[in-house]
Amino acid sequence: MYAQMVTSEATQEDPQKLAAFQARIDAGEKIEPKDWMPEGYRKTLIRQIGQHAHSEIVGQLPEGNWITRAPTLERKAILLAKVQDEAGHGLYLYGAAETLGVSRDELTEMLLDGRMKYSSIFNYPTLTWADMGAVGWLVDGAAIMNQVPLQRTSYGPYSRAMIRICKEESFHQRQGYHIMMKMAQGTPAQKKMAQDALNRFWYPSLMMFGPSDKDSVHSAQSMKWKIKMNTNDELRQKFVDQTVPQAEYLGLTVPDETLRWNEEKGGYDFAEPDWSEFFDVIKGNGPCNTERLAARNKAWDDGAWVREGLIAHAEKRRAAKLAAE
């Protein structure tokens, strides 16, 4: 997901406090910034929310790649509004992380020097306009699977950020599917483009949920703390079950010959993605890792004089105001 493979931190604190904390979570109470919380809970959340925020920001790039080439003025406006929303979502999430005692600049620096990760999906290139459809439909569709349950997460600021994000994000997947519909009903070239986009984004979308974690100790701890709401496999299955009929409606073929409806489990059987590719991407060897990080670093470095200039002006103004009083 946007926060893949976040390992939870072990925690060594007063067992009584831990038990009381767990009881609050079990009772459905929200944990707020000034409340006592285990150090492991705090650290795991910083890592997870930070990674989620980074994914939104890096996630601007593959779609931003097509803003200046959108085919109509309306499509350009829609895409721009969507990518802008992603910047907003990054901002809300950084804000939630900041309540845990880390600054946005610290998180940003950890992204830029590679200490923190972002979702593997954004290391894939967007090559045709149909990719704008596929990203909205599949990538946002997969993200929503995870984000909707996270609205109920135990940490108050995170939960509130997710509520706002889910509300805003509801048009994102629909605009993507709308692009796919237009293309699937379009010229032979457009239809081919749509199929090609599905072929390239299907498995990377399945990878977004991360490898199976049903036996993972870290995931179990995170689920107990209600900062992870479902297992990766549950979400992946749900995503496939929802998406396959949508592909059929478009007249497109999911690139998986083993895909079959399984009456007994009431879901599809499907092929696992190539996990070695996933680990390559996570390690930095995806098709676009270098470009994505370079773009973020360039924006940050080129923007330094602007950030410095505006704060310097604000300080001068404040000093002048004080002097006048």
């Binding site: 901002l91 804000g95 900041e98 946005r104 706002r164 505006l310 604000a314």
Partner: peptide, 12 residues
């Protein structure tokens, strides 16, 4: 309260 953001001063 809707959230937070960064800015150099109150006007911005």
């Amino acid at each position: 309260h809707v959230g937070s953001l960064h800015a150099p001063d109150a006007e911005m």
